[in-house]
Design a binder for these strands. Structure first.
Length: 318
DNA sequence: ATGGTTTTTACTGCGTC
DNA sequence: GACGCGGTAAAAACCAT
């Protein structure tokens, strides 16, 4: 039960960031643990939604080869690490612009045909823009559009900021689809203050969305962090293990998951003798070093972390 | 608006490579 | 001496009420 990553989980390297890729044939879902973290359970939840997709996708998915690569890329492993991710080990990716255009076109077709009135609002087209810009999966676009139409029907978004609503809806869709993007990233892409988007997001949750959407887990943050920082996978495993061990603790309550995740990763790295600085994990988790330190302190106060681990664990004991 | 909680900002001292 | 680490106080942000 301490093992979270199963054998054979990692099939490939992410073409964009080099992180581990997981690809589920059955569900047609691929997830890079750096760019778009999707935890196993959440994938299962996605099942129905994916089945509802057009058959064209299915046939494309079955084939192996170049189209697959294309769809891999399509499935939205994105942005945020763009600098080094740009071009990886010689595998030439199709020009960004072309893919974006194609995706945009497809998305718009779908929306046009399904939406009853095109004049529904500018929000829908804005959603398309944002999804394209962030290279998010199609499922996100569809989910976002669906949520928006519903909220529109319920009149809750009447006379609200278009940008704010857009960001909120897209973020909500990401959450539903298990795509790990922060509200901050999306707000920036939309060009709106995060707190405004947050307001609308809460509004949506309260008024429209009846199904509870779990917030991003500490575990998902940990995976994201480890992969983004290119830290040894052992650290990830240990960090996740520590989370599991300390799961039923009040240390968690009210603290930002990303900060906690950063702390776990840091502690795990120290235990394993990996050289990872607080600054590094803090930056990647979008928190300050102070927060990392505080979480570490609280964690270490609450628990005695011993290193009685198996093979050549040259860890120190804290 | 307000109050309680959490995070950030800014600054300091300490050890070490 | 710069760097990583640890701590602190006050400001800022967040959130429910």
């Amino acid at each position: 039960m301490e093992t979270v990553l199963e054998e054979g989980d990692v099939l490939n390297k992410c073409p964009r960031c080099g992180g581990g890729l997981n690809y589920d044939e059955e569900l047609g879902e691929l997830f890079c643990r750096s760019c778009a973290v999707v935890v196993q359970e959440q994938v299962a939840d996605l099942g129905p939604e994916w089945k509802a997709l057009d058959p064209e996708d299915k046939t494309r998915r079955v084939r192996v080869g170049a189209p697959l690569t294309l769809s891999l890329h399509d499935l939205g492993l994105t942005t945020e690490i763009d600098s080094r991710a740009q071009d990886s080990q010689g595998r030439a990716l199709p020009p960004q612009a072309r893919i974006s255009a194609g995706k945009m076109r497809r998305w718009q077709n779908r929306v046009r045909t399904t939406s009853t009135e095109r004049s529904l609002s500018q929000v829908l087209s804005k959603i398309g823009e944002v999804v394209t810009r962030l290279a998010l999966p199609k499922s996100v676009a569809e989910t976002a559009a669906r949520v928006y139409r519903r909220s529109h029907k319920m009149k809750v978004v009447k006379s609200r900021s278009i940008k704010g609503v857009t960001a909120a809806v897209v973020y909500l869709a990401c959450r539903k689809c298990g795509v790990s993007r922060t509200l901050n990233e999306i707000s920036q892409a939309v060009g709106v203050k995060e707190r405004n988007a947050a307001r609308y997001f809460r509004l949506l949750l309260r008024e429209v969305e009846d199904t509870y959407i779990p917030p991003p887990t500490i575990e998902s943050y940990i995976s994201k962090l480890v992969n983004m920082a290119k830290i040894d996978a052992r650290v990830e495993r240990l960090a996740l293990h520590l989370v599991a061990k300390t799961r039923d603790s009040r240390v968690f309550s009210g603290k930002t998951p990303s900060g906690l995740a950063a702390a776990y990763v840091y502690i795990a790295a120290v235990l394993l003798g990996e050289k990872v600085s607080q600054r590094e994990v803090a930056e990647l988790a979008n928190v300050t070093e102070v927060t990392v330190r505080n979480r570490c302190r609280e964690l270490l106060e609450a628990y005695v972390i011993r290193q009685r681990l198996k093979p050549q664990g040259r860890g120190k004991s804290l």
